[in-house]
Amino acid sequence: MTAEPLLFVFLAACAVTTAVLMVSHRNPVICAISLIGNFFCLAALYLLLRAQLLAVLEIAVYAGAIMVLVVFVIMLLNIGEETRTSERFSFRTIVGGVLGFGLLLELLYLFVFTHYTAPPLAMHRDAPLVGTVESMGQALYTQYLFPLQITGVLLLAAVVGAVILAKRRLS
């Protein structure tokens, strides 16, 4: 497949562009929409990595459930554009940029220019079989059964907590 590197470059460019737009735009609704675009790019990258189930879950859970919740809260609270322009490019922004750039250099050094993890250069030949629903279900319901049950309890606690927190006090 010769189209794969081309597709990767296109998707990576889209992902980085939407991420930068999300961080830099002052209107929260546009931030949320660009983050949804970023999730779609990442889902396509998961497909390039042969992770079919996770690509579907990325769109269903992140772009579908979580971002709908975020957009709903933005609409509910009626948050407009940020008006405090003096604080948008302050000392804090510069410190954040410098720290972030340092972190980027560190991560790139660790991931790309060292052989610390000795990454294999070609994709594993069983990679298309790893990300299927069958393989994931096999792993989740045998090897990871206990964490899966704990996740169910966690989601129940989160639902109860969210209802308690957002409830209007009747006093």
Partner: peptide, 13 residues
């Protein structure tokens, strides 16, 4: 790494 850094800058700035 690039996406993570953009997220860190978003949280800090």
């Amino acid at each position: 790494a690039i996406l993570f850094t953009i997220g860190v800058i978003g949280v800090l700035a």
